[in-house]
Write a protein that binds this DNA or RNA. Structure first.
Lengths: 348, 348
DNA sequence: CACGCTGTTGTGAGCGCTAACAATCAACCT
DNA sequence: AGGTTGATTGTTAGCGCTCACAACAGCGTG
């Protein structure tokens, strides 16, 4: 027993054609903005479409045109501020260009997950994929997968021959380090992110370069895992060094590779009775919304995530529509945000 | 001039059928796990599929089955921790059930944006939509749009007849308030979220109820906009009240409606020379990753965003597949996380 | 006035798949 | 043995759309 209402099917192009007294092809022409349709006919059709509440069937269209106009996004760790913001930028840009965006979120980026994600998206016929895969191993895995559509990476570095968009992490790190040196610090310590991450590597590289260019021997690098807790641990170690004042490079300035870890560092310093920025200046990276309200407000590097999203969609669409062939890599400029945590104070 | 390589089309079911020496229908049966296929035939087909690298065309499939197996997600403010985490949970759950998830992110939830978003998704034939629309006006707009597919809300309240999933915000607020009263505070102040938000309303309601049940007259509610800055401003006001000690309810405990604002409150109190929790206890809501590292670590309410995502997909799929008819509303239980910011201290 | 041209509309085929039905064959029952 | 069943496979007809092409009008040109 079928309820009659369950049987009503949405109107088709043929229904509209009948309603408007034209052929289905004319309806199609109106919908695709074909120039050679008389104004009067066009209006008839438009009216009929409205009366029936007609909507073009995307599956039928995709079948015949072989274009799904769907893009995939693979993102690891979408709950973090950076990837989440990039996602928004991506989606908006894609929508403007008439594409649908389908997202696959992975908790961790181990190889199988990536492969499955690509597979999942491929089976729905996406025309291209943006991969927000900040770890070297992900990018490696991605390059080896050899997907049947273009793949653009975000923060994927440019050593592999996948096209991509990144913030100029190294420049950002240089800006922070130079800012700290300019404020009169004789050296700058560094709390880095985890090893496998391209962002950590670039930030560390930028920091190291500036020091070396200034003839300063970079102190030992402390490493965290982006979490506030790991920053806290690093901060405890730095607090110990700052108080001991023996043998090692004096700790007066610290460049922490992201804001969350900087939060932990600040807490550890405070607990160690060390004033910021009075005794030790601290700078972060990312400019999360909370950074302005840290104790003290954090000097950091702002990333224009929306721009990164927009440009990666641009690049992907260029590849899909055959306008780009090479593995181009775009860099987005960072912005240094100076706040109290590195403010030169009166005390020496 | 067409490059020959541009002309190779992906293999079709007919190609596989020829390769395996069967009819295309048998191939279809193998792919849909139809029971009545001889094991040997099945293997022939599987082998042929593998040899050709065949992949079922989802558009053709959707055309004939009238099922796109695609779900839409509309989210306002995806860059926030809560929505972003929910999104991950949603996407995983949908993927497990064999659905593709397409996301539309809106910066603000004004009416036209929502309508366009629904339209965008509808034109791609989504079978249902999960709307992460925490503002009353969004839900209202959504209910009025009358979409051609089921819509499930997340944090959308249950006064309207849309099915939905929410955290039990009111219970969370009760837990915090009771915790503060149990710690010996005579009253609890409240910094609420913006007016139009259902979450603010529920949190304020929970707080108020507990106070009234205990025969305590609730003090005036301060209002913020979820941002650390607005919390900072509210905190300045509270600091003033705490120091003045005249006329008003003494300020010894504050329940802030989210963790970001709590960060601002903590800073303002600290700047006012007020110790937390010594003089004023502070609690938040959300348990963002940073909360554990606030000065001091913040007592807050944890939301199981993954569970919320999972259950909303469950609800949506039930509606799509006709298993549910009513506008059911599910509640997810919150968890109180006790930390130093509300710890009873030695001082009176 | 025959011809070609351009603008406008219609006709037919087919994209790749699934659903319904038909056909075949072996096994089983009476 | 003849008929009936059930398992396995093949055949056919669309799903709703776009593309290629045909048809036809109205116009100017030699």
């Amino acid at each position: 027993m079928v309820h009659p209402a369950d049987d009503v099917r949405p109107p088709t192009m043929a229904d509209v054609a009948r309603e408007a007294g034209v052929s289905h092809q004319t309806v199609s022409r109106v919908l695709s903005d074909h120039p050679n349709v008389r104004a009067a006919t066009r209006e008839q059709v438009t009216l009929a479409i409205e009366r029936l509440g007609y909507r073009r069937n995307s599956a039928a269209r995709a079948l015949v045109t072989r274009r799904t106009r769907t893009l995939g996004v693979i993102a690891v760790n979408t709950a973090l501020y950076g990837p989440a913001s990039t996602l928004t930028g991506l989606e908006e840009a894609a929508r403007e260009q008439g594409y649908l965006v389908s997202t696959v979120s992975l908790r961790t980026g181990e190889g199988q997950g990536l492969k499955d994600a690509i597979d999942h998206l491929a089976s729905w016929g996406v025309e291209g994929v943006v991969a927000i895969t900040p770890q070297r191993s992900h990018v490696q895995a991605l390059a080896e997968l050899d997907a049947p559509f273009p793949v653009v990476t975000v923060e994927g570095g440019h050593q592999l021959d996948l096209p991509g968009v990144s913030l100029d992490q190294e420049l950002g790190a240089r800006m922070v380090t130079e800012h700290l040196l300019a404020a009169g610090h004789g050296n700058v310590w560094h709390v880095a992110g985890p090893d496998d991450w391209l962002e950590s590597e670039a930030r560390t590289a930028g920091w190291r370069t500036v020091l070396e260019e200034s003839g300063i021997r970079p102190p030992r690098v402390l490493t965290g895992d982006w979490s506030p807790l790991s920053g806290y641990r690093a901060g405890q170690e730095l607090a110990g060094l700052a108080l001991a004042r023996r043998g090692t490079t004096p700790v007066t300035a610290v460049f922490v590779a992201n804001d969350q870890m900087a939060l932990g560092v600040l807490r550890a310093l405070r607990e160690g009775g060390i004033r910021t920025p009075g005794q030790v200046a601290v700078a972060g990276f990312d400019d999360i919304p909370e950074a302005e309200f840290f104790p003290p407000p954090l000097t950091t590097v702002r990333q224009d995530f929306a721009a990164i999203g927009r440009r990666s969609i641009g690049l992907l669409v260029d590849h899909i529509e055959g306008r780009a062939r090479k593995a181009e890599h775009l860099l987005v400029e960072p912005q240094l945000i100076m706040r109290a945590s590195t403010r030169p104070s009166n005390e020496s």
